[in-house]
């Protein structure tokens, strides 16, 4: 067990249990309005990474219709706010998911579907899938289930909107930017040194 997974910077365990975890309940009025707009209109990236993607068409079409909540699918990471990692994530897919996540503009959120993103799920002993998604990317919302039902997925969206609106949990992208070394170390552990384009310079300007 390598040591850096013990004390993850934001205790992933709390995020897992969706406990009330409001680190900054002191939203200013403007920030509250900004967060309201951010929660009211969310763009999901059209990327079906795993088998959970089969439950995305039902929620975007007429039976469950998530557009009522202001969620629509968009094609490119530049336009997207939310990236859904729907189920297990193989090496090849993780590389593309990290690149898409890094190309999205802040504020961005990551939803992990299914138990495969939490602890490897049914493919816990497979050589090609990752076991804990939050080692490589900060996850904002887990939706459990070996392929969660559409209702569970919508519940996930509603909970995320609630978190954003009331700043209940610190957003993952801030962690990804501030302690990028932690994530990069894990990524390089499985990918080797120079396989993914580095991230720092892109947001160097943002850090200071």
């Amino acid at each position: 067990m390598s040591e850096n997974t013990q004390e993850g910077f934001v205790d992933q365990q709390k995020v897992l249990n969706n406990e009330e975890y409001s680190i900054k309940n002191t939203q200013s009025i403007i920030q509250k309005a900004v967060d309201w707009f951010r929660a009211r209109s969310m763009f999901v990236l059209a990327y079906g990474t795993g088998c959970g993607a089969i439950e995305m068409p039902p929620i975007f079409t007429s039976r469950y219709d998530i557009e009522r909540l202001g969620v629509i699918g968009v094609a490119t990471p530049r336009q997207a706010d939310i990236l859904i990692v729907s189920g297990y994530c193989s090496y090849k897919t993780l590389k593309r998911v990290i690149r898409s996540y890094e190309q999205m503009n802040e504020p961005k959120y990551l939803i992990g579907l299914g138990s495969c993103t939490i602890n490897g799920g049914m493919y816990w002993d497979s050589y090609n899938t990752i076991k804990k998604l939050d080692e490589y990317l900060p996850v904002d919302m887990y939706v459990n289930g070996c392929m969660p039902r559409p209702e569970a997925l919508i519940e996930g969206f509603v909970k995320l909107q609630d978190n954003i609106r009331n700043a209940k949990s610190e957003a993952g992208y801030i962690q990804y930017r501030e302690n990028n070394a932690f994530y990069r170390a894990n990524q390089e552990k499985i990918f080797g040194k120079n396989t993914i384009p580095t991230f720092e310079e892109n947001f160097a300007g943002m850090n200071q």
Partner: peptide, 10 residues
Amino acid sequence: FDSIKLFLKE
């Protein structure tokens, strides 16, 4: 709302 949210992106 969509256009306002996009204006307010960080």
